[in-house]
């Protein structure tokens, strides 16, 4: 643990050296999530409801998914740099140390500016919760606490899976980004808008629906209009465990496949 702490301290000290840049990048990180919310706000002021959810309820879906995504991006979003490490051969250095490769990537490349996005997502979550009617029970409070964590694990698994693709395809980064950022984008909306095929895909294959839409249904006490079973909205932690297991398997297989940069 002390080694990770040292890596983390070094990364943070490096970023603290450029205060003006850091402030502007923090602002950029806040604005990027604002960009996504503009879309939710604009669409839900044109129509009263989408898939039976009004502006405040879709804002809740948005906030839950964004909180999970921002948390994952902060902790493990650095996996999109695996391509660079593989290309330069610096991934060898990570493998030589007696530490987890993912742990080193997470600690050494952490980007504090991503806190701007997380803070904004949490603020939208608080506002959305104050605008919707929730029949609070201990189970719902527990779900509210667990949802951002499950969401972070689900999106984190997608980040790791997308990073692992770089072990096979050096140009895989952009396609991996389409999967991670695309899932982050569509998770902010009621999954039903995607239609039956894509909607089921992003529920059962890529479990994006478990980060925002489904837990929001459980909090609001609503049923899914597309006929998903009533217990499924409570199952986000299970979906997170399954996603993490799949991502870990892919990452391990990728590392075994890695043969260095030929140096």
């Amino acid at each position: 643990m002390t080694v990770y702490a040292a890596l983390l301290r070094a990364a943070l000290a490096g970023q603290a050296g450029y205060r003006a840049s850091f402030a502007l990048e923090l602002l950029g990180s806040v604005l990027v999530i604002g960009l996504d919310f503009v879309e939710v706000y604009a669409v839900l002021t044109q129509v009263p409801e989408l898939e039976g959810l009004g502006l405040a309820e879709v804002a809740l879906v948005f906030a839950l998914a964004s909180t999970g995504f921002s948390l994952a991006d902060l902790v493990i979003g650095q996996t999109d740099r695996v391509t660079d490490h593989v290309r330069r051969g610096t991934f060898d250095v990570l493998l030589l140390r007696p530490l987890s490769t993912l742990g080193q990537l997470a600690a050494a490349d952490v980007q504090l500016r991503r806190l701007g996005r997380l803070g904004t997502a949490l603020a939208v979550l608080v506002i959305a919760l104050s605008q919707v009617e929730v029949d609070w029970t201990p189970a719902r409070v527990g779900l509210l606490v667990l949802t951002p964590l499950s969401g972070a694990v689900i999106f984190g698994s997608l980040f790791v899976a997308a990073g692992a693709v770089s072990f096979w395809l050096l140009d895989g980064r952009e396609v991996g980004n389409a999967l991670t950022y695309g899932s982050g984008y569509l998770a902010q909306w009621p999954t039903g808008v995607l239609g039956p095929v894509l909607g089921r895909f992003f529920t059962f294959v890529v479990p994006a629906a478990f980060t925002g839409y489904l837990p929001a249904l459980a909090l609001l006490g609503r049923d899914d209009p597309t006929g998903l079973p009533g217990w499924l909205p409570w199952a986000s932690p299970l979906a997170a465990l399954a996603a993490a297991a799949a991502a870990a398997l892919l990452w391990r297989t990728g590392i075994r496949h890695y043969v260095g940069a030929g140096g």
């Binding site: 879309e39 669409v43 389409a178 695309g182 909306w189 808008v193 995607l194």
Partner: peptide, 21 residues
Amino acid sequence: LAGAVTNTFFGVVKLSILFAA
């Protein structure tokens, strides 16, 4: 090619939202 695929994927999601609206 990767950029075109990404733009197309986001287009599918965006258009699904707009159609639902």
